[in-house]
Design a protein around this nucleic acid. Sequence first.
RNA 1: GCCGAUGUGGCGAAAUGGCAGACGCAACGGACUUAAAAUCCGUUGGGCUUAAACGGCCCGUGCCGGUUCGAGUCCGGCCAUCGGCACCA
Length: 851
Amino acid sequence: MNERRKPYPFDWIEPKWQTIWDEQRFFHAPNPGEKNFVPAKPKFYVLDMFPYPSGAGLHVGHPEGYTATDIIARYKRLLGFNVLHPMGWDAFGLPAEQYAIKTGQHPAITTRENVAKFKTQLKRIGFSYDWEREVNTTDPAYYKWTQWIFLQIYNSWFNPETKKAEPISTYRGADPDSVRLAYVAEVAVNWCPELGTVLANEEVIDGKSEVGGFPVVRRPMRQWMLHITAFADRLLDGLEALDWADSIKALQRNWIGKSEGAEIDFKIDNRNETIRVFTTRPDTLYGATYMVLAPENSLVDEITTGEHRNSVAGYRTQIAAKSDLERTDLAKEKTGAFTGAFAINPANNEQIPIWVADYVLMGYGTGAIMGVPGHDARDLEFAQKFGLRIIPVVQAPGKTADESIGYVDDGIAINSPLLDGLTTEAAKRKITAWLEERELGRRSINYKLRDWLFSRQRYWGEPFPVVWRDGKHEALPESELPLEPPALEDFKPTGTGEPPLAKAKDWIRYSDSASRETNTMPQWAGSCWYYLRFCDPRNDQRFVGEEPERYWMGGEKPGGVDLYVGGVEHAVLHLLYARFWHKVLFDLGHVSKPEPFQRLVNQGMILGEDGRKMSKRWGNVIDPLDVIEIYGADAFRCYELFMGPLEQMKPWSMKGVEGVSRFLARVWRLIMEENQAGEWILSDEVQDVAADKSQLKVLHTTIKKVTGDIETLSFNTAISQMMILVNALTNAPAKPVSALRTLLLLLNPFAPHLTSELWETLAEKFPGAAGDITEQSWPRHDERFLVEDEIEIVLQVNGKVRDKITIALDATNAELEAAALASEKVQRSVAGQTIRKVVVVAKKLVNVVTR
RNA sequence: GCCGAUGUGGCGAAAUGGCAGACGCAACGGACUUAAAAUCCGUUGGGCUUAAACGGCCCGUGCCGGUUCGAGUCCGGCCAUCGGCACCA
């Protein structure tokens, strides 16, 4: 596109203002006590999920949320807030390491290059970040504090009395290592041979690695774990007071997966041992006709009797050989093997067989269940396949006992001497109390949430500040932080499960008697607390200064960050992990708030023009810089949000960008015109005249709507309303400069370059508005300009519109009714019918009812 | 299977229980132009009625029912699409 065809000269306006903003530090937010800090202003902390700087650069999906937050940031500044709006880099991670393996280039170099690229792109869009607060998780000055926080976690335990994290020194037990919030355990991990690392459950999708899609197998390994499950209840309860979408809260609740029930001990027949099971339906105990142990349950070997040893061993081998994918395949039939052993049902002392089956998972509950085929779909299927007894013990409403087999909801207890006639709820209470009295069981709560597998066998991550001595781990002193990873030539996995750091023999050797931990932390670590570091990013004494933390994370609500915007893909893990760390830091007194993020919004994905997910494969990826080249950054920003509601998934459309670009050009031409020489000069039509009544009405309607819409993040309708205003002003022979200035202010958060330039141009000819547009105040609407003397009233007959009349605003209901009945069209519609009722809605409508 | 979200013109989408489709795109017509682009103005849910215009009428927000003077919006029951979890006892 050549110079002449640009709808307005964004190509020089945009770089001009970006330079001014940078040089004059317009968007730098000083901390309390620093120069230019204004204590009287309220604070607003608006945060984006910081990106992983990949080699591919930004695509149009990233800036959607970033534009939304930037509009909020600019709007809040005009409203007189101290705004914290930072950006940084979540730069540890696999791609840079994989690239290093392929090319030998150190991940730090790749990361530096990618960060530079991302930063250039973000700056080109005109975001008002305070770049002086930029952080990078791979910077030793940053991960020093990531390691420090790990030590806080390591040096804490969860006190069940106070339900809080406390320093390990307050623990009175014999073995503190057994209760630390960071502990080492031999666990079955998701080992990915291809990546040469273990993965968290969350990083495994359908038995394959989330990154790369490589096969993942189960394998026991010694791993660092974080005891997040201790906080399950608080993570659950804390959701209540947060302004998050219900759907996101539901995802977290679902992930935590709290279920209440009972543990029940079944005595093994002829042995002095019991099998403990967890059930949410203790009321169905009389219907428990068999038990099942998970194949990995260590009791299996002990109890299996002679003639069944071969079949059980065979079954367990067969299951062990299966991948996770095969095991969780729902379509398959139930399988299992009888152990030959029996247990005693504590309710009725009946002997019931003990089976092994893979539909019972070792990782949930106790790794054993009581089989109640009458009222559990899985147990029913299993019992039917293996011919086990099925007893109905809960009667479904309106059904016979036999018809109630397979009924899994609440009903009335039957065939249960102690419980007969009780509702499910009452029966649960009674049987639990009965079991507790006899010490055969107890109330119990189970969670799906597992402890967080926190170690990775990688190079490009934070090393653990831990050394091993005589087989025991101990923390490094704080003075040795940051602990930097060793320089390596070869980043390849060792293939044995030993991390790449194991290759750095000198580095590992800490002293004659101690050696360093060679695992590194997962990528989640750095992002668990970056929002805190932004408050005080250059502090080298503390992970965040107390005063900046209290100021920026302050406020009346429990969460400190006022608005957090990012992709829904982080709805569970990142947000749960960050909340967990935050609660530990809160308990230990390091931060002032119990929750990190008060209001959370997930932006929807942007699809390609073909309606498919953007991907290289479809060739439908849109590069923001290509769009900006043709239409400018302001048009790009506006289109990102004009497309539709922020949270919705929606397809990209270049035609749509063009439409928005036309709108901005119309704004430009409201104020500017081309002279004979083809130069843009201030238009003669811009005059210092008062806006007329209709202009004032649309202007103030726009102020009101845009303000309300920004608050609710309804940016698409805010832009629509500004289009209406511009359309209304376009044909005015004289453009009142006051109205234009208001328009520019309203549009400024959306199109900051264009409006800055026009504001400056207006100021040259029309005095009275000193300073840059970003230094002005947000306009307020005046209700007086919205009301009219006369108002249009809709006349309905039986709910259908028949006529419209214009009538005085203050017309009484009686006058409205009279006017409606006088309408010729209404009379025609009601002719020959009896009027039964007339509904009058003041200032809106009159409905004449004849039925 | 469970949980959640969504369903409105040719397309992206608007609509405190009160005129369905604002605004934008696309399309069509007009003005300007030698011409095109750009720009400006106008038309645009479907159908019936009418020679045409004006006017009038009917239908229409995934489907079926309900509440209401009045339902895209509230309630009940389905269907479809997308997302999450998934043998979680």
